[in-house]
């Protein structure tokens, strides 16, 4: 049985939910999860520094892009409905099983981030695997995760200036990690013809 599903050279292809692609998505999610795990001290360090001035939520927003990277990556590698969502959710699940400091919250954050990331690809009809599609995904990720933090982390009780600052911070972070970095990785994959492997 042939487990190869991605035809060579055809960049416009749609992927399918085959066993091989499912494993691929899960592996990428775990890889990114483990790489962030190594950067976990960053969050704690930032929080420690920012807590005395009451700006700890900024640590969350500064690193948001990093946490939301698995979605765009898997969305780009396996180009089909749901791959960004599954990748992002599994990435969060890895953190839970590694024993992260979020517990069950990470599962739900994963769901929310996955939906955010997936929506962008859905809006472009799973056809724009370029800068436009990526930016759509960034936009929906920021909006959806921010709306969620309004509820979960009590952002809705903050004043407008603070909210705006948090939103902009989150957007920049997501743009850099989910956008620019993802774009650079995809370019490397493109150049090495990895998509046709």
């Amino acid at each position: 049985m042939d487990n190869k599903t991605q035809p060579a050279t055809n960049r416009e292809h749609q992927s399918k939910w085959t066993l091989r692609n499912i494993i691929l998505i899960a592996l990428i999610a775990i890889f990114t999860g483990i790489i962030f795990w190594g950067a976990g001290f960053l969050y704690t360090a930032l929080t420690v520094v920012l807590t005395p001035i009451g700006a700890a939520p900024f640590a969350n927003d500064l690193l948001m892009g990093l946490w939301c990277m698995a979605g765009p990556l898997t969305g780009f590698v396996v180009r089909t409905f749901g791959s960004a969502f599954v990748g992002e959710f599994l990435g969060a699940a890895v953190e839970v099983f590694l024993g992260g400091q979020w517990g069950a919250g990470a599962f739900i954050s994963g769901l929310v981030q996955g939906i955010g990331s997936e929506l962008g690809f859905a809006f472009t009809g799973y056809k724009r695997y370029d800068w436009v599609g990526l930016n759509a995904s960034i936009f929906t990720t920021v909006v959806v995760t921010f709306a969620w933090d309004m509820i979960k982390n009590g952002y809705n009780k903050f004043g407008i200036p603070l909210l705006l600052a948090l939103f902009v911070t989150r957007y920049i972070s997501t743009f850099i990690f989910g956008g620019v970095l993802t774009k650079m990785i995809v370019r490397l994959l493109d150049r090495s013809n990895a998509f046709s492997l």
Partner: peptide
Amino acid sequence: HFWSPKLYFKAILSSIQWSQNLAEAMT
């Protein structure tokens, strides 16, 4: 570092290779 594209690139290459091997092994 965690901001180096190369790190993720190589991780994805490994993932592609391993997913292929695993799927074939399971089959």
